[in-house]
């Protein structure tokens, strides 16, 4: 690209959108909303941390409907934002088309693989992270019954559930795992009332540790568990602080790191596959002052052991999405 072309490109970009600075990064939040205290919020925190550390600024938008995915992607790309990060697998089809039309713009999609030369696909091995919190749940449970509450019933959440059940059963083969999904539509990501109802139902059946992998719905799960005096496990962001002494731990899915890295790398970011797992710090469990009292050394030892074995390859956690089935119930 010659200097003249660059200059013309910049002028055109400025003409399209006078407000957007050149190559300002952008992020698009999924239907769950930016402040879901979970997945989208983690993405937001990553973006905010980048802005604070570098003094840069970024553009953002929260979606209202499916048809807006492509619309938002195009608007950002046309406005010259680069790179454009999207939080959520549901962008895959829209991105596949838009990425072709804007070959000079870099896109980052989290939780999905889009095979285009200008796209970085960040995927997490959630089954591994869910496995280690499953170990913690089985260790902490006194009744031998633990619960799982998913958001929308999709393969990704079944992957969480499957990893969790494997961790529980590996620690206590006699344990019972009660599983519920909140709903069948994207509204299930943001229905804390229903999350709380499901939690109460699971507690009534004897569950005393409940893992919520449900976006904003999880807030209701953690609340209901805290009200009933049982343990819960948060997801995506560190949710230990929400109910100290009740949230046993949180399965950290470092979406924030993925967003931060993308913004930091800027328009020249490396595209292609980017797998985040226990080994490279993309996944972890949360231990801080809020759960130090309940996360005993015994639990910690078991969890650390499982984590080390997964990293070394000694434990192979089955990935639900590899064959759409789970070996344990």
């Amino acid at each position: 690209m010659t200097l003249m072309q660059k200059f013309l490109g910049a002028a055109a970009t400025l003409a399209i959108s006078a407000t957007a600075a050149l190559a300002e990064p952008a992020i698009i939040f999924d239907l769950g909303g930016k402040f879901d205290k979970s997945f989208n919020q983690a993405a937001f925190e990553g973006a905010t941390r980048w802005a604070e550390e570098t003094g840069g600024s970024f553009r953002e938008i929260e979606l209202q409907s499916e048809a807006q995915r492509e619309q938002a992607l195009r608007r950002f790309a046309e406005a010259g934002n680069n790179p454009i990060v999207m939080a959520g697998f549901a962008f895959a089809s829209a991105l596949d088309e838009v990425a072709r039309d804007f070959p000079d713009t870099k896109f980052v999609i989290i939780d999905m693989v889009v095979d285009q030369p200008n796209v970085r696909s960040v995927v997490f091995n959630e089954h591994e992270g869910s496995y280690i919190v499953g170990v913690a749940a089985a260790k902490a449970s006194k009744t031998g019954t633990v619960g799982f509450i998913g958001g929308m019933d999709i393969p990704l959440i079944r992957k969480f559930a499957c990893g969790y059940v494997q961790g529980v059963k590996a620690t206590n083969p006699d344990a019972t795992v009660i599983q519920n999904m909140t709903g069948t539509t994207p509204a299930a990501w943001n229905d804390p009332v229903k999350g709380a109802e499901l939690t109460k139902a699971q507690i009534a059946k004897g569950a005393d540790v409940i893992y919520a992998a449900a976006g904003g719905t999880g807030v209701g799960v953690l609340q209901a568990a805290a009200d009933a005096g049982v343990y819960s496990i948060g997801v995506d962001s560190n949710q230990n602080y929400l109910h100290p002494g009740s949230v046993l731990t949180s399965m950290l899915k470092r979406v924030d790191v993925a967003v931060y890295n993308a913004f930091k790398d800027g328009p020249d970011l490396e595209t292609g596959f980017n797998v985040m797992g226990l080994a490279n710090g993309g996944l972890d469990y949360a231990l801080d002052e809020h759960n130090a009292g309940i996360f005993t050394d015994d639990i910690k030892a078991a969890v650390e052991d499982a984590k080390a074995k997964i990293i070394s390859g000694e434990i192979q956690v089955h990935d639900y999405m590899s064959d759409n089935s789970c070996p344990v119930e």
Binding site: F89, D153, I154, P155
Partner: peptide
């Protein structure tokens, strides 16, 4: 719809229903 789109109608090897 969720049953079908997570089952026989779903394109294999992808996330979204």
């Amino acid at each position: 719809m969720i049953y079908l789109l997570n089952g026989i109608l779903k394109k294999p090897g992808q996330q979204a229903a």
